[in-house]
Simulated assay, not measured.
Amino acid sequence: MVHRIEIIEDRLVVGMKTRTSVLTIHEKTKQLAQSFMPKRREVLSRIGVHVFSIQDYGEDYSPANPNSEFDKWVGVEVENHSAIPEGMQSFIIASGTYAVFSFKGSVSEFPKQRAYIFQDWLPNSGYLLDQKAHFEILSEDYSKDLQNIEEEIWIPIKS
């Protein structure tokens, strides 16, 4: 699987979030996107047309517990947090090193991709998982054809 290593500065995001677990992530992400996407053009100082899907696991998250909750965000990148529309919040994707994987396929194939990253690639990469938010960069029309999606998966790593 093709990947690259990127070092980024802080990325500012404005969007909406919900609390979820791996058991409820699909339904809650759908609801979150349905709330955010029609309002995304209200966000001023937007950079580009891409959309972020962010998982902010936090220190208390336990991947072994399917009921363990984390924050799920859908948002857009901005130049600054000076004008945040009503019902939205700001988030900062922390600077650092990320492994970036390109994904093309159907939504149903996505879990297989994530399993490869965490069960095969990461243990053999020489890197450790960093305690920062994970995110995907999606095209603005991402949800129109869930059988034929393209996205970048960004995983925080450290040496």
Rank of each mutant, 00 (worst) to 15 (best):
H3V: 02
E9H: 09
D10M: 02
L12A: 10
L12S: 09
V13F: 01
V14C: 04
M16A: 07
M16F: 02
K17Y: 06
K17F: 07
T18D: 06
R19T: 11
S21Y: 04
V22A: 04
V22M: 09
T24E: 06
K28M: 05
T29E: 13
Q31L: 14
L32E: 07
A33Y: 09
Q34L: 05
S35A: 14
F36C: 10
M37Q: 04
R40A: 15
V43G: 12
V43E: 13
L44C: 12
L44Q: 15
L44P: 10
R46V: 08
V49Q: 15
H50F: 12
H50Q: 11
H50D: 15
D56H: 08
D56K: 05
Y57N: 11
G58E: 09
S62R: 01
P63E: 02
N65K: 14
N67L: 02
E69P: 00
W73Q: 02
V74E: 07
G75L: 04
G75H: 03
V76W: 05
V78E: 08
V78A: 13
N80K: 05
H81P: 10
A83F: 10
P85N: 05
P85L: 10
E86R: 14
G87H: 13
S90L: 01
F91M: 05
A94P: 00
S95G: 10
Y98V: 09
A99D: 07
V100S: 05
V100P: 12
F103Q: 14
K104E: 12
K104I: 05
K104R: 10
G105K: 08
S106A: 15
S108K: 05
S108T: 00
F110T: 00
F110D: 03
K112W: 05
Q113W: 06
R114T: 12
R114M: 15
Q119H: 00
D120G: 11
W121P: 06
W121L: 07
L122H: 11
L122V: 00
P123I: 02
P123W: 02
Y127P: 07
Y127N: 11
Q131A: 12
Q131W: 04
A133G: 13
A133F: 03
I137F: 00
D141T: 06
S143W: 14
K144L: 04
D145T: 01
L146V: 07
L146G: 09
L146M: 13
L146D: 04
E150R: 11
E152H: 05
I155Y: 01
I155G: 02
I155E: 01
P156M: 03
P156N: 07
P156T: 11
I157L: 07
I157N: 11
I157G: 12
K158D: 03
S159W: 01
S159Q: 12
S159F: 03
S159Y: 07
